[in-house]
Computed example of a mutant assay.
Amino acid sequence: MDPAFEPRPARPGDLPLLPPIEEAADGLFAPLGIVFPPGDPVVRLMIDNGGDILVAGDPPIGFAAVDELDGAVHLEQIAVHPDHVRKGVGTGLLRAVLARAAAGGFPGVSLLTFRDVPWNAPWYRAHGFAELPEDRWGKGVRNLWNAEIDAGLHDLGPRLVMWRPTGPRPVPGRT
């Protein structure tokens, strides 16, 4: 990844630049038949509610929005402007989120995402996330899941909850 895109905490002047990045990134879903319901961008809601925002670039070309949920870090969203996808920006943001979660003593990172979109669940799986069974969901994750249903997000495609612990990743095939 280009060092100019190294993730950093968002500054106040970055915040108005983030909703257009989210809206542009959301356009990548249209060819898959996924068109998000109208309303405020997720990042604007995160900003208004005091969520933690990391950005890549100056001015930003991508961001990660996180919050604390059920005693862990919850990754609400990673968005990268379409002009900068497939350059390691999203991976850099994800690594920064995981590092900050580990440094903060959190047990892991949760997220909700589309099961079949290549840059969603398969991408997170390649970065060590696994599906979190419903019987392990905390109250906060369950509330988010239900809010997504109410907002019509689940009508756009199959969703799932994923989790990655912040501790050492096990070697595949070993217990």
Results as ranks from 00 to 15, higher is better:
N120R: 05
G140D: 13
G138M: 05
H127F: 07
H127A: 07
D135R: 13
L93M: 08
V85A: 05
F114S: 01
W123A: 08
R115Y: 07
G157N: 04
L144Y: 09
K87M: 15
W123I: 09
G128W: 10
R125N: 08
G108P: 07
L94M: 09
G108W: 02
V117C: 06
R125M: 10
V89A: 13
Y124R: 01
G152Y: 14
V117W: 05
G88R: 04
V109H: 01
E134Q: 15
R86H: 14
V85Q: 09
G138D: 02
V85M: 03
A96S: 11
G88W: 05
F114E: 01
G128K: 10
G108I: 00
G88K: 07
K139Q: 15
G152K: 12
R100C: 01
A102R: 05
D116A: 15
L98W: 00
L153R: 11
G108A: 13
A102T: 00
D135E: 15
G108C: 09
E134N: 12
N146H: 12
A147Y: 14
E131V: 08
W145Q: 02
N120Q: 10
R125H: 13
A121C: 12
L112P: 00
E134M: 15
L112H: 04
V141D: 03
A151K: 15
V89R: 00
V109T: 02
A103S: 09
I149C: 08
T91M: 05
D116T: 14
V85Y: 04
W145K: 11
R100P: 00
R142A: 14
W123K: 09
N143V: 07
D155G: 08
A101D: 02
W119T: 07
